[in-house]
């Protein structure tokens, strides 16, 4: 045990940090784009506050196309773009680019479904008060769906932890990278098990935090 930690301890700490860094930072960027996109998907539908059938159809198509591409393919396909954006396609920071691209449409769908949970009557009441579409979005739709959005954010982060392990396979770093390099290629089962346990703990922690926070802020 002591020898194991001496050999691998620093690497595991670094791997854990890299995984958390990749997952949380890409979740944050994914929400910066995915939240407006998800809201746009909801409000441009017929009978909603900004009905735009054509825009809605285009957004839906784009979201579906990106979601159809298997993440491992997306990871490789965006390498030229990643190089152009961050100067390299290897390393933890570079892997955030494909993670964000993969997560944006996922976040958009989660946000869209949270928005659709909101009772139509509440939006109608705000319309009747003379609220503008923009006011309805940021004063009604987003605050009223916050508990559901928080749950969605924990789902997104957990999905990104899984994706980040795949990013590790192409030089992304993190726990997934360790599991593949040491556990899979070098048959180091102990190290592989330890990385999996660490991933399980991180996932449990994120889910627990998300569920608790969602409950705590929900007044309904």
């Amino acid at each position: 045990m002591g020898a194991f930690l001496e050999n691998y301890g620093a690497m595991l700490v670094q791997g854990t940090w890299d995984t958390l860094y990749m997952s949380f930072l890409s979740a944050l960027f994914a929400y910066l784009m995915g939240l407006p996109l998800g809201v746009a998907l909801a409000v441009t539908e017929p009978h909603h506050i900004l009905p735009r059938p054509h825009v809605n159809r285009i957004l839906n198509t784009v979201v579906n196309i990106v979601r159809s591409v298997p993440f491992i393919i997306l990871l490789i396909a965006v390498i030229p773009f990643t190089r152009w954006l961050v100067g390299t396609s290897i390393g933890v920071t570079a892997s955030i680019v494909p993670l964000v691209i993969g997560a944006v449409p996922f976040v958009a769908r989660l946000v869209e479904s949270s928005m659709k949970e909101l009772r139509k009557g509440i939006i109608e009441a705000a319309t009747a008060m003379g609220a503008s579409p923009f006011q309805i979005i940021y004063k009604v739709m987003i605050p009223e769906t916050m508990p559901s959005l928080v749950l969605g954010a924990s789902i997104t982060t957990i999905t990104l932890i899984g994706y980040s392990a795949m990013a590790g396979a192409v030089g992304g770093g993190g726990l997934g990278d360790l599991a593949i390099r040491y556990g899979y290629y070098r048959y180091d089962t102990t190290l592989m098990m330890v990385t999996i346990v660490l991933l399980v703990l991180i996932v449990q922690g994120v889910q627990l935090a998300g569920t608790r926070l969602s409950k705590k802020i929900n007044r309904q």
Binding site: R119, G121, I122, E124, A125, T127, A128, M129, G130, A131, S132, V140, P143, E144, M146, P147, I217, N218, R219, Q220
Partner: peptide, 22 residues
């Protein structure tokens, strides 16, 4: 213009439509 006049027309509903998180 429509939003302005709506501010002078209050409305209540069968299922209240209150903001549940406020």
């Amino acid at each position: 213009e429509l939003r302005r006049i709506r501010q002078s027309l209050g409305m209540i509903f069968q299922d209240f439509n209150l903001l549940m998180q406020k």
